[in-house]
Design a protein around this nucleic acid. Structure first.
Lengths: 225, 225
DNA sequence: GATCGTAGGATTGTTGAACGATTTGACGAT
DNA sequence: ATCGTCAAATCGTTCAACAATCCTACGATC
């Protein structure tokens, strides 16, 4: 019965702080709260109708996810990733995703499908010029890769890395057209995997990271003002 | 001037919540607060002389580090890792550390020394039967490996994984004698690296993880009561 | 004119108390 | 022995207050 899991999800009612954090996370990721913006406790707490203490708990949760940065006695700000941040992020991704992809032959078929399916979606959406949703599928592709490792801790940390990267895209003003170049690349990686050439697929993934990092860092540092 | 970095550390005065969290972290890691123990807000807040609100902020920080678990309306508990937790942890370590170690030939000499030195220390301390400090050196060895990737995010997450693993050791009652078996193993890995056989070193590291995971999970599930 | 110090206002850090909501454990009925 | 019921304990959240800190603008000095 899937109703059982459903019921459990209902029972696990989120705390107020959790709900506030979820709402703020959306606002940050969709760009309504721009990187660098300071979040006033009073203003936001008043707007959402929660007390300062509860709001501060929500801020802690988002700080853990690296979406906000906390400066002592100055408040919390929406993170504004720098070029160095992006380099750090890609260094982590190279290790995590290339390492996970190497496990391709040792995992379940369901895990492999979680890598293939998002690429098919991305290709289909790209053909319709639906770049926003193509980008979402692209993230699912990378989530699938990390999922090959079979570690929830690793997957959770990767989600944080992806979220932080989304912020970097925003600063670099690269929301929609970024993936355009890389959708074919991902498709090629899946083809190599299906052909059994895991080694070459890992190689291609690493090169993808090199190219994406350079592109993003370049635009980011040009954007510094 | 290193005095500059010193001064900066002094200036960055920690908040009360941060200081409380640091103190509790020590107590958890040295076993004074045993896994499974419930931390009463009132009792601890009273003992430390901080308000409930501040203490709750400290709890959040430690929950982020996975040292505490929070259960709604029930309070926070010192995490008590299960066999599944350990499997998850080692799955993550396999990807992160094996992937980092593969970078051996592309990093600076200083980074390589950060791997070699702790092994020398561990060997020396093991000969003196100082297993506690040998264990600390062993952790430094693995921190050094992750450091090869050059990502602070990856290193920070690894520190959290290590801390959580320390809790598992405690539950498994394996504080001192665990490393005894594995110090020679680490030494062999470094020898392979120095010989230029990175591939084989990675292989050995993976086997070390297999053995350590099996050992730890076994003792952990025997300990379930 | 630029730099520096200073005063004032705004915001955060922390506390303490309060009250509703939830869990826990014991007691008694079936 | 199992199942409600109730009271005590604890957590979740809010509110108000004050101290500590930061930011800004205004002059003072060179």
């Amino acid at each position: 019965m899937s109703t059982l899991a459903q019921g459990k999800a209902d029972l696990e009612r989120a705390s107020t702080a959790q709900k506030v954090a979820d709402m703020l996370r959306e606002r940050v990721l969709d760009g309504e709260l721009a990187p660098g913006l300071r979040l006033s406790e009073e203003a936001i707490g008043g707007a959402l109708g929660v007390s300062r203490n509860t709001l501060r708990e929500a801020f802690r949760l988002l700080t853990r996810d690296r979406l906000l940065v906390h400066e002592h006695s100055r408040g919390v700000f929406v993170r504004r990733p720098t070029g160095d941040d992006v380099r750090d992020l890609y260094a982590a991704r190279r290790v995590i995703e290339c390492g996970s992809l190497r496990l391709w032959n040792d995992v379940t078929e369901a895990q492999r499908e979680a890598v293939r399916t998002p690429v098919r979606q991305a290709v289909a959406r790209a053909e319709k010029n639906d770049w926003t949703r193509a980008g979402q599928a692209n993230i699912q592709f990378h989530r699938g890769i990390v999922g090959l490792a079979g570690s929830t801790r690793l997957s959770d940390e990767s989600d944080r890395l992806f979220a932080e990267l989304m912020l970097a895209f925003r600063v670099a003003q690269e929301i929609n057209d970024f993936y355009q170049t890389y959708v074919p690349w991902n498709r090629r990686i899946v083809e190599l995997l299906n052909d059994g050439d895991t080694q070459q697929a890992v190689e291609q993934l690493a090169q993808y990271f090199d190219a994406a990092e350079e592109d993003l860092v370049g635009r980011l540092e040009a954007e510094q003002s």
